[in-house]
């Protein structure tokens, strides 16, 4: 029998790992979105939320390191599969079409590497902008904290930035659409044609919710100049 390490590197193992890391990232995204939505809460809700996270100290670092690892493993597997794929079919088809249902081959599934790489680049810029961006300090209920909310609102006054975000969030939706289905299928290790159809639909709804949730924020801020009714000030 192969060792667990060998097993993890096998075709099946890779896929399971990709599924697990994908799901972890998916969960992270859900919480991230919920957190972001505090922007639409009370005046300082977003800043308090950010500050609470920052004050977790070492735990936050551990969490971040874990997240980066998960992210890298996920990306590594994806890139490795993609690189291998060319070797697996050195001469391509002159004409290639999908048979259609029950195939799950779509723009989503075929562009995973592309959307994935964009998401990777995006993540770096995103962290640079918001984690290491210039912020003012403010005092809320006697506690000093970064005014991240202002940073967010200011950033999304730039139309290019907003477009960039919207495009990437749409791509995120595509990535999640196939990713959710794929991870679930790999991990539950079951599913006939009917279950597959259900899982796929649920995955698509999830993807749309996430994409719309994330892109709504910059769009709204930009459209209302940061002073919309949803944003308390």
């Amino acid at each position: 029998m192969p060792s667990l390490v060998d097993a993890a590197r096998s075709q099946v193992g890779r896929k399971i790992l990709s599924g697990i890391t994908g799901i972890l990232l998916g969960i992270f995204i859900i919480f991230h979105l919920i957190g972001n939505l505090t922007l639409f809460g009370s005046e300082q809700a977003f800043n308090i939320y950010s500050h609470t996270l920052e004050s977790m100290g070492i735990f936050l670092y551990l969490f971040e390191i874990g997240l980066v690892l998960v992210f890298l493993v996920h990306a590594y597997i994806g890139v490795a599969i993609w690189l291998r794929k060319r070797k697996r079919r050195p001469v391509g088809y002159e004409k290639y079409s999908s048979m259609g249902d029950p195939s799950k081959q779509t723009f989503s599934s075929r562009s995973m590497i592309f959307t994935g790489i964009i998401l990777l680049i995006f993540t770096v810029t995103h962290v640079a902008t918001f984690k290491y961006g210039d912020t003012q300090m403010i005092t809320v209920d006697g506690t000093q904290m970064k005014d991240l909310k202002a940073l967010v609102i200011n950033t999304f006054q730039n139309p290019w930035y907003v477009i960039y975000y919207i495009v990437v969030m749409i791509l995120l939706g595509f990535h999640l659409r196939h990713g959710a289905w794929s991870a679930f299928t790999s991990l539950t290790m079951k599913g006939g044609t009917k279950t597959s159809a259900v899982v796929y639909t649920v995955g698509t709804i999830f993807a749309v919710l996430m994409a719309v949730g994330f892109l709504f924020i910059p769009l709204y801020i930009y459209a209302t100049g940061g002073t919309g009714a949803l944003i308390a000030s």
Partner: peptide, 13 residues
Amino acid sequence: GFGDCSNHAECEA
């Protein structure tokens, strides 16, 4: 030399 499964499900179709 067969490739990885990416759950495209084209095979079933």
